[in-house]
Design a protein around this nucleic acid. Structure first.
Length: 358
RNA sequence: GCUGGGGUAGUGAAGCGGUCAAACACGACUGACUGUAAAUCAGUUGGCAUUCGCCUUCGGGGGUUCGAAUCCCUCCCCCAGCA
């Protein structure tokens, strides 16, 4: 762990932490939201469009980029930033989420996880070491530990403790490999490494996991294993519980949360950074947020003759440029990709503004 | 005018005597989406009732049959070829 990666600079009137996270591509202001660029780009958007929403950091994915086009190719092309044109820092997820989302095609052993891609027939093995190597080759600025994430169904719930313990063992291996890979880099050029805590909806496990991760020389602490199907009340209650357990000196990253209501709650409970597919996926599917965290589906018939912009209080490109709800509905109904782009921009700006205004 | 093919729910298109309110696709409407197997997925889509169900439909009319979108007669309309 390099010294003073994170510095708290204050607290918002509402109670959110304000601070600065230092990365090798420069400092970023916390709190911040990371748009998801799984395959290297935020679906359908240019880097400039993403940046103009106020985004500072992008999230990309180890698993997907390893499959296609492969980290060696990305490395040869100069790393992610050169490859995709995003000049700010990029955080890469470790492939851990795919242990959960691709549960039906994967097999976990202590050594690592084997995935059998149904589309390509490829068999992919990812271990903690392998995940570090891939992320390092991709040129990630914030590397995530490879974790074992389990769901909430009865049979997976039984695995919560086991998954947490394995995540801890794997974190140790990640650290060793990370140190090996980065030992020759000067301090300012090292990527950061974040550890991930698990524990499901069990407070004791959560506390134990946070304690363990924070005992390790990681640059940041991530909360994994939430937003996997639990109720809002359960999510909020756990976030409140954990808010008293964080190391004040390190950034806290809540993985996968992006519904504005949960987002605000997290910020008011000590979280500094988040990512989520919701603004972009829902945007592409036609749903945008209105002031008050109210989602509306632009495809709905009731917008057919609506001359208003999405939200007159919004300063995103889509709203400033004056695209009416009626036009957006028309574009959605005709499958014009511009519709999803404009809605994604609006939703990304919506979350960025929460960070700026909370 | 002759010969052949065809007219099915918003559209295209199956069905060719009962299990047909009628496959499937598209369209339409509604909903879902939280570290992206997701520009995706689910439900509804004749009327009424919306729980069993009831009613009216497959170009029009008339037959045959216990029973027809499906067979026969007739009329109307489309398409192709020949006059």
């Amino acid at each position: 762990m390099s010294q003073a990666v994170f510095k708290q600079t204050g607290q918002s009137a509402a109670g959110a932490r304000l601070g600065v996270l230092k990365t090798r591509r420069g400092p970023v202001k916390t709190p911040f939201f990371m748009p998801v660029a799984t395959r290297g780009v935020v679906k359908s958007l240019t880097p400039k469009e993403v940046k103009d929403t106020g985004a500072q950091v992008l999230l990309s994915n180890t698993y997907h980029l390893h499959l296609q086009p492969g980290e060696e190719l990305v490395k040869r092309l100069g790393g992610l930033a050169k490859f995709n044109g995003w000049e700010g820092p990029t955080l890469t997820d470790s492939g851990g989420f795919q242990v959960f989302s691709l549960a039906s095609i994967r097999k976990i052993t202590e050594e690592g996880v084997t995935f059998k891609e149904p589309k390509t027939g490829d068999e992919i093995f990812i271990s903690p070491e392998k995940s570090m190597q891939i992320q390092f080759s991709l040129g990630s600025d914030i590397i995530m530990a490879f974790d074992d994430l389990t769901g909430l169904s009865l049979e997976t719930r039984a695995r919560t403790k086991e998954a947490m313990e394995r995540t801890h063992r794997w974190l140790a291996r990640c650290l060793t490999e990370f140190n090996r890979l980065t030992k020759d880099l000067p301090d300012g050029q090292k990527p950061l490494l974040f550890g991930i805590s698990q524990g499901g909806l069990d407070e004791k496990l959560r506390e134990k996991s946070l304690d363990f991760v924070q005992s390790q020389p990681v640059d940041g602490v991530a909360i994994g294993g939430l937003s996997v199907g639990e109720s809002r009340a359960e999510l909020h209650s756990m976030l409140k519980f954990m808010s008293l357990l964080y190391d004040p000196a390190r950034p806290r990253y809540l993985m996968g949360v992006g519904h504005p209501i949960d987002f605000r709650w997290a910020l008011l409970n000590g979280i500094d950074m988040m990512d989520c597919v919701m603004p972009t996926r829902n945007g592409r599917h036609g749903t945008v947020w209105l002031k008050g965290d109210r989602p509306v589906n632009l495809k709905s018939l009731r917008f057919a003759t609506d001359k208003q912009i999405i939200d007159k209080t919004c300063d995103c490109y889509t709203c400033r440029a004056g695209y009416s709800r009626a036009l957006l509905r028309h574009l959605f109904k005709n499958s014009d990709p511009l519709a999803g782009r404009l809605a994604s921009i609006h939703n990304l700006r919506y979350l960025a503004r929460i960070c700026e205004e909370i």
